[in-house]
Write a protein that binds this DNA or RNA. Structure first.
Lengths: 345, 345
DNA sequence: TTGTAAGCGTTATCAG
DNA sequence: CTGATAACGCTTACAA
């Protein structure tokens, strides 16, 4: 069954192809009458315009790509769902491209832009430490979502949406300190992470300092590079090592809820209790942090808001309605069962 | 920066466009020499062929769509990751389209096929109860993944990959019975689910019957239609209702791990213990079922195998290497901490 | 082995 | 308001 084209429709309606095109695309220059008639015929024949042809003709296709660095972390799933919904709502196509931890996401983006004639790009995750000249090869608007940027980048060169990773991390560690914890372990990103990983580490250090606590680098444990980043397994393995080491601590702050859950597993396996023996805190505020037993104290990021704002900014950029913007959402400390006050001592 | 085209490359190389095209597409009729030279120029200029143009020319674009019915259930995420990897590996584009619970996925598929000139489709989730004539409007190969089909469909008309939902469900309930449970609640799909929901319910009934246990419909609770299906929240709400009812039971079998975790939360909130007061079992074998506290007894579906086989069959179908196939993978009962033997009585 | 030229199905330009 | 017709960038007969 050869597919039906706009020409077929035009013939059936006894009009020119232009007119059919106008009907499809809601152009003003067409009478309501003919338009209704054409739409009727289109519906009856299940005609759907060929996307490739449209994209070829339009200089840019109506598609947005979302590039995710590293394998899916649960928090991203919520974001992605919102992206998808919003993009579909705007009648754009949506391309999800996961890029491996070792790959260069910018490289991928540049290729994809040409290949698929993208209208916009969302970068999710990763560090985004790229040379400026390479960044300039990207000619479509893009927004960095939940990727904290360090100072070396000119804020007028890109847009971003995130929480204040430094502040929120500080908030959690400050809370833990206020509960009497003096030896707080951190499950952090790998050391080469100059993005949120670094910011959260800095927040941790600052909070410690502000409470007059010494920074003990033996309590800072990085995720394993050979395991999926931010995964439960990673948290489990790292915590297990920590527990087996001689280093004492009373609380663990993991920079994602998934890591925190892995940490819990390791602690339970060691025959210890949470929060009586160890307090455990996470970051993100994904569903499972609430459902876990014990429920996990965490920093809840407003995922829906973040995702919606990301898309909003991206489309504003596409329509040239705005210059570069850096939207920072507040996150919320949610205290639950996995942490407790301990005796000063 | 106007994009560079195949013509530009041809000019730069001092050859015809055909030659460039041949170089790009690994055609045989070209000397290694010219090919190398052309590829070199392409690389230097960061040329990437316009996908729309290629797709327009080729009668079908090299793209596979995965349609997911209903909002993402954690189990699907693993499948999707594998799909993505495999499809990318085959140099095909990958389109992920979530379709709302109320929407007709077949309708969406038919549109998408025309619009994007798909080469193949994977259906994930849903019941897939469609009229044969409508099914015939789909002219590209498709594979049903983890969608149990009931008898009324002719197995020669479609391909599928899944576990034996009836058998695996039976296996779990049989296990629970063997542990002395006589009053086993079921958190099942909505009653209009004629697919895996129904099959798992049938497996439950059969196991009960084989153990000489009466079927008590008050112990069969359906997910709430107004909540995300298969979600933790759904399991939580349903279980809460169940606990507040007068109906006695000693075990709950939830047809997904997420539901099971929600159930656990409700039980803990009621001040009860797992497994001492209630045994809880899930289905799927997602990571969190292992990491949860207590770890959840479940049926582990071989997600990677299922996903890989789905893609394999789809491509075999595309290349006409096979007729319709129904691959059924065995799943595994994984006994963990959330269930226990109780006294006969 | 290489090049020329005709489409693929749309949309946009411009003349009726 | 409507309709020819020329692109859009690529693949592929067909010719050389």
């Amino acid at each position: 069954m050869a597919s039906i084209t706009i020409i077929d429709i035009a013939k059936m309606c006894g009009v020119g192809v232009t007119t059919v095109s106008r009907a499809i695309n809601n152009h003003p220059d067409i009478s309501e009458e003919t338009k209704a008639m054409i739409m009727q015929v289109i519906k009856e024949n299940h005609y759907v315009p060929n996307n490739s042809a449209r994209n070829l003709k339009r200089s840019a296709s109506k598609t947005i790509a979302v590039l995710i660095k590293g394998i899916t972390n649960a928090f991203f799933n919520r974001l992605i769902q919102v992206f998808e919904k919003e993009i579909q709502q705007k009648k754009y196509s949506f391309i999800l491209q996961r890029v491996d931890d070792k790959e260069d996401e910018l490289e991928v983006a540049i290729e994809l832009e040409k290949e698929k004639r993208l209208r916009g790009i969302v970068f999710l995750g990763g560090y985004f430490s790229h040379a400026k000249e390479k960044l300039e090869q990207l000619s479509v608007p893009y927004v960095l979502c939940t990727i904290g940027m360090t100072e070396e980048f000119d804020p007028n060169e890109y847009s971003s949406v995130s929480v204040d990773d430094f502040k929120e991390s500080y908030k959690m560690v400050d809370y833990l300190c206020s509960q009497g914890h003096k030896k707080i372990a951190l499950i952090s990103a790998t050391m080469d992470d100059v993005s949120i990983g670094k910011l959260r580490l800095e927040g941790y250090k600052k909070a410690l300092a502000d409470h007059g606590l010494a920074y003990n680098e033996r309590l800072v444990r990085c995720m394993k590079e050979d395991l999926e980043s931010y995964s439960m397994k990673n948290g489990y393995v790292v915590t297990k090592e920590l527990l087996e080491s001689e280093d004492e601590f009373t609380a663990i702050f993991a920079i994602s809820d998934s890591l925190a859950i892995g940490a819990c597993k390791a602690i339970f396996e060691a025959g210890k209790r949470i929060p009586e023996d160890y307090s455990v805190a996470g970051f993100d505020g994904v569903d499972i942090s609430y459902y876990y037993n014990p429920s996990i104290t965490t920093i809840r990021q407003p995922a829906e808001d973040i995702a919606e704002e990301t898309i909003k900014i991206l489309f504003d950029l596409i329509h040239k309605k705005t210059t570069h913007i850096h939207k920072v959402f507040p996150a919320e400390l949610v205290v639950r069962e996995s942490t407790m006050r301990i005796e000063q001592g």
